[in-house]
């Protein structure tokens, strides 16, 4: 069996003003589309940021296809939240998508015809080719999200990590993204999506990671996505955990003690 595209072991993150993750442990099998779900403040985006190395974890190990991110970077594409960039930035749709190719360019190399072709294909897949020359400030929210996804597609990665791609998008975009997820699955790619809409989890994904500061459950939908685990994730029974999280933050505990 080949190594899992993403495996997280004993991940603990304490983060200023943001929730804490404790001892999160899971692996996403190859070729699956997985959703990370949990209530607001459960640490979903923090988990993704820690996985990408933007947040220094207090402890834990993250492996991509059995190796470090540094070694496997070309196989990993990350889609940040839409709100993380300034959409007034003077850049066209095409150039934004071309950024997806920068990872493979040498320092002084210019994007070649092949790179442009890849960007064009990616735009076509998300149905945005006709907007290629448009400046990004002239796009709707849903179109912006599609551009972000196209950029990730242009990376031609094997593992896609998306932070809330369905947040605040129109119906057409949501459909387009879902189609895309299917297509990626058909190509054998692995996709991990931070998701907030419980009603669509069963339709869009095959695998879930239920999170509320701790890992509540992870696995195939039919096993892990049960009323019981949902109740654990969203119910009030973890009150003590958040109270302790508050204390951990007060003490500024960045690392494990003891």
């Amino acid at each position: 069996m080949s190594e899992a595209p993403l495996s997280v072991r004993d991940l603990t993150v304490s983060y200023q003003h943001k929730p804490v993750l404790w001892d999160v442990d899971f692996a996403i099998p190859e070729g699956r589309t997985a959703a990370i779900i949990g209530p607001n403040g459960a640490g979903k985006s923090t988990l993704l940021k820690a996985v990408m190395g933007f947040v220094q974890p207090a402890s834990g190990e993250i492996r991509f296809f059995g190796d470090t991110l540094e070694a496997r970077r070309s196989l990993v594409a990350y889609v940040p939240q839409r709100s993380e960039v300034d959409w007034d930035f003077p850049i066209s749709v095409m150039d934004t998508v071309l950024m997806g190719r920068y990872g493979r360019l040498p320092l002084l190399g210019r994007p070649r015809a092949a790179d442009r072709e890849a960007a064009r294909r990616a735009l076509e897949k998300v149905g945005m080719l006709e907007f290629a020359e448009r400046q990004i400030s002239q796009l709707s929210g849903g179109q912006q999200q599609r551009v972000f996804i196209a950029r990730a597609l242009a990376q031609e990665a094997s593992l896609y990590l998306m932070d809330e791609p369905f947040a605040g998008v129109d119906v057409a975009t949501e459909k387009a993204i879902v189609e895309l997820l299917k297509e990626l699955r058909a190509e054998g790619k692995t996709v991990v999506v931070v998701h907030h809409d419980l009603s669509t989890v069963g339709d869009y994904f095959e695998h879930v990671v239920l999170l509320n500061m701790r890992l509540v459950a992870a696995g195939p939908i039919e096993e892990a996505f049960t009323p019981e685990t949902l109740n654990k994730t969203y119910g009030g029974r973890l009150g003590m955990l958040s109270e302790v999280a508050e204390r951990v933050r007060e003490y500024g505990l960045d690392e494990r003690t003891g």
Binding site: K49, M52, A77, P80, E84, M99, R151
Partner: peptide, 8 residues
Amino acid sequence: AFAASIGI
């Protein structure tokens, strides 16, 4: 964030 994700 994206820049860091592609190794810049």
